[in-house]
């Protein structure tokens, strides 16, 4: 699976399926299981159909038919949200660890 077609062309894997979505959504939008299922189903189908090494199958899905401006913003300066400071990140991590220690599997 890939959302970065130029990197995938450079790496040149045996098989790939390309989805033109912003980074972090390589198998779809959050809480849209039907879209996710269609994307993954296409990817599984590619295992049966790709017979030429280096093939990249391009999927027909569009992130937002009315707004393609994400393409000008993705992976540019200021696009990444601020990271929490180190102490805050450590607190978040400690909280996660303790949450699961006390909860049933």
């Amino acid at each position: 699976m890939t959302s970065a077609i130029d990197i995938t062309r450079a790496v040149n894997p045996p098989r790939a399926v390309f989805l033109n979505f912003p980074l972090g959504h390589q198998t779809g939008k959050p809480d849209q299981p039907e879209l996710q299922r269609q994307i993954v189903r296409h990817a599984m189908r590619a295992f049966d159909t790709i017979d030429q090494p280096g093939t990249i199958v391009e999927l027909p899905f569009v992130w937002d038919p009315n707004d393609r401006t994400w393409e000008t913003r993705d992976y540019t300066k200021g696009w990444m949200p601020e990271r929490p400071a180190r102490e805050d990140a450590d607190l978040i991590e400690a909280e996660r660890q303790s949450r699961y220690r006390d909860s049933p599997k």
Partner: peptide, 25 residues
Amino acid sequence: HFGYPTADAQRDPNCVFPLERMREL
């Protein structure tokens, strides 16, 4: 992950880790 905005993946890991979808398939 430090390299992409993880908010959507944190809300629904199936955005980058389609485990629930693979179980359905």
